[in-house]
Amino acid sequence: MSLTDWLSTPENWVFLVIALPMLAAAVKLVTTTNVVHAALYLVVTLAASAAVLLLLGAEFVAWTVVLVSIGAVVVLFLFGIMITRAPMGREATLSHPRSVKLAAAAVSFALFALIGGAAVDAFTSQPLTEPADATRTGALGEVLFTRFVIPFEVVSVLLLAALIGGIVLARRDPGETAGGGL
């Protein structure tokens, strides 16, 4: 498919409008020196990825990204940053030594090649030709609770274990002295 063909489809324009800011935000996310700004660029990146998922008709996954990744994970990041050593205002706090930058770049490209390669290899024979219809949430729930019920339960138990672990780490028993922590 030539570039002009590709550009003649309206969906591709929408994709560009979403993907270019997403790329820019992703680059800013790792280059900014302010840790709170980095978290906010992560929000933009995640929101754009949710928009791409919407474009592909994966409505449920898209809103899950918004609810879990933006609404819970990033909010907890921000909360954690602010409650510990919040640099208020414009103070620059992150430094990027050259060796760290190079190592990070190498790891990112390796990961990109791995995931991208795997995705292209797996799905290249079955492209989405039509503008995809939205997946019905009911159908998704049925698959989740029949065919994938064991992985689902395994993940639930894993999360429960993490939850209990978190409480054990954070909790102070009555006998302990109130030193060390907060």
Binding site: V43, V66, G71, V74, L78
Partner: peptide, 8 residues
């Protein structure tokens, strides 16, 4: 999902 944006 959208109402969680307010927190942010």
């Amino acid at each position: 999902a959208v109402s969680s944006l307010t927190t942010l």
